[in-house]
């Protein structure tokens, strides 16, 4: 097993072997999470602080549960409500927390690169739970685990990532991870929501769903991030749904056994038809949530091992 990092800031610095290490360990934790006694002691005695500078229910709950199941002392801090309003800088907040001797710091921030900056200023291990439009590594890892478990492999698959790529850190981390594992990645969406320069990433870009989904093994839908749009990316939600919303007709272009994924929360009737999302034969959306806890347990476990090795 190999995992070198002190932090988990993004997929970009990870080696494929490290990705496999996290996924293999996460597989074991899936078993634990399904057992009647869901407890291990990998993080016993360690303090985990979840710092969320941006609203989150699902990711924060997932990290919290992951830490508790491994025996860590977990604290949640809603940063929007506290010192930020009083004008404290990110660095000051980091130094204050650092003085409390946490071991694991889980951070979400609305600005790209903010978690990297924070990691430079603290002594503990930092996990990026999403920074701006940059990266969301645990989401990409849980997606990878979901794909691997349902397709039996994580290479040479045709994977379409569809919708609001421009505002999505999930898309960036997934493109990096799936590329590293040698998959064929396609981006499908209206050109206004495809970042300029995306074609240079080693992906194929489509603005037509039917063509983009042709022969795909995996269809990954993204949430239309209405809160990040300051105007005029798409003409209307109904036109978006008509052209890019995933319904049975569009899904028919993908392979018969193609799976449907979504990082949640979903806008039903905007990017995805409710019946597709609920179709247990196609949709793995609930499984993604389950894998999320396991992947986060694995990531924190590995980081804690490196912390202990460093201290020893």
């Amino acid at each position: 097993m190999t995992f070198r990092g002190k932090h988990l800031l993004g997929i970009e610095p990870l080696h494929p072997v490290e990705i496999i290490t996290i996924l293999d360990l996460a597989d074991e934790y899936v078993g634990l999470n399904r057992a009647s006694v869901k407890h291990a002691d990998a993080l016993t005695g360690l303090t985990q602080i979840n710092m969320f500078f941006e609203n989150s229910t699902r990711t924060q709950a997932s990290f919290e549960l992951a830490g508790m199941r491994l025996g860590a002392d977990v604290m949640n801090m809603q940063m929007q409500a506290s010192s930020i309003k009083k004008g404290e800088t990110l660095i000051d907040t980091a130094l204050t927390l650092n003085a409390m001797h946490p071991d694991l710091l889980v951070v979400r921030h609305p600005h790209s690169g903010a978690v990297d900056l924070l990691a430079q200023k603290v002594n503990c291990a930092v996990l990026n739970a999403g920074d701006g439009r940059h990266e969301h590594p645990t989401q990409a890892l849980l997606d990878a685990l979901t794909i691997r478990r349902s397709k039996g492999r994580l290479h040479r698959l045709n994977i379409a990532i569809c919708g609001d790529i421009a505002h999505s850190r999930v898309a960036r981390s997934n493109i990096l991870l799936l590329g590293k594992m040698e998959n064929r990645v396609r981006l499908v969406g209206p050109p206004t929501l495809i970042p300029s320069g995306a074609a240079d990433w080693g992906v194929e870009v489509y603005d037509d769903m039917a063509k983009g989904l042709e022969g795909c093994d995996v269809v990954m839908m993204l949430r239309l991030q209405k809160e990040r749009m300051d105007g005029g990316f798409i003409p209307s939600e109904r036109e978006y749904y008509h052209r890019y919303g995933l319904d049975a007709g569009k899904l028919a272009h993908a392979k018969e056994d193609a799976i449907v994924m979504h990082p949640g929360p979903m806008n039903r009737g905007v990017e995805i038809d409710g019946t597709i999302a609920d179709d247990i034969n196609r949709s793995v959306i609930q499984e993604q949530v389950e894998m999320g806890v396991a992947v986060r347990m694995a990531a924190m476990d590995l980081l804690a091992r490196n912390l202990r090795a460093e201290a020893a």
């Binding site: 970009e12 940059h134 960036r172 320069g197």
Partner: peptide, 12 residues
């Protein structure tokens, strides 16, 4: 704007 900006998720 370009490949680098898009990868880093920075407004460009």
């Amino acid at each position: 704007s370009g490949k680098f900006a898009a990868l880093k998720g920075l407004p460009a």
